[in-house]
Amino acid sequence: MPKLSFFLGCIMPNRYPGIEIATKKTLEKLGVELVELPGASCCPAPGVFRSFDKATWLSIAARNVVLSEELGYDLLTVCNGCFGSLVDANNILKEDEAEREATNKILKQIGHEFKGTIRVRHIIEFLHSEVGADKIKEAVVKPVDLKVAVHYGCHLIKPSKERHLGSVENPRFFDELVEAVGAESIEYEDKLACCGAGGGARTAVLDTALQMAEAKVQHAIAAGADCFVDACPFCHLQLDVGQTEIAKKFGREYNLPVLHYSQLLGLSMGYTPEEMGIDMNYITNDEFMKKIGGDK
C-alpha cells in the first residue's frame, strides 16, 4: 500500500476542512495510506513569499519537505500553491548545491537537514499516475451525473520545467479522473485560464483578480456546467468566496458551485455532500445540492 505524508497547508484545514476529510476518506478507499505530518507550516505561498525574500521562502519550504523526509515518506498535497512551493523548493535544493548548502546552514540552527530523499506529489497527478483512472472507476458505487467545468489551475502544470506533466496548453489527465467517476468534463472558453488569485494579486488588487474569476464563472455557465471541479483550495476560495465578493461589489450573482476533486470523488464513492463538506462552501445553490443528493 503506498504511504505518503499529508501536508495540510493553510486554506484547506483553516477554511475548507471538507477537502481534508474528503481526501482522507477517498484515498483510504483507494488503498493509499496517509500519515500525519505534525508541525508543518504554510508552504509558504509561492507567489507572495518568493516575491518577498527567496531565502525565507526556500528555508520555510525546505523545513516542510524535511519534516516528511524525517518520516521517510513522499509528501502529498492537494493544493496547487503548496505544490508550486514544495516541488520547486525540493528541485532547487536537490539540484543547486550552493542553495542547498546555504539553506542547510539555516536549517541546522533549528535542528534539521535537507537530504533530498523524497518526492513531492499532488493528489491529481498522483492519482492519475500511481492509482490510475481504471482503479478509480472500480471504486465508484454511485456515478456522478454532472457536467463539470474542470479547473486545472496554473501551478499544477506550470512551470513545466519543474513539473513534467505533459502539455500545458491542452492537458487531459485531470479530465480523465473526472470522467472516471461518471461525470462529463465539458469544454469551455479559456478553460486553462488562471483563477486570478495567485502571485499575491488577490491581496494586492482584489477587484481585478475578481474580474478574472468572474470571466471563468461566466464561461463555465455559458457552456452549461453544473459546477467547477478544482485541484487547489486557493483557486477554490477564489472561485467560491470570489462569487460572494463579485455579488457584493459588482452586483452580479452566479452561485456556480465549486468542488475540489476529492469531494467529487467522495460523492462517487457514496459519501453524502454533507460528509464531504460541500454544503460548507460560501455560495449556496439549493438546486445543485438537491441534484447531488444533499439534505437541503
Binding site: E20, E36, G39, I110
Partner: peptide
C-alpha cells in the same frame, strides 16, 4: 489541525527561521 499552530515547539522553529533570515 496537526500543523504548526498546534505545536509550540514547531512554531518556535518557524520563529527562529524567520529571525535568521
Amino acid at each position: 489541525p496537526y500543523t504548526v499552530q498546534r505545536f509550540p515547539e514547531s512554531l518556535d522553529e518557524v520563529h527562529k527561521l524567520v529571525e535568521i533570515t
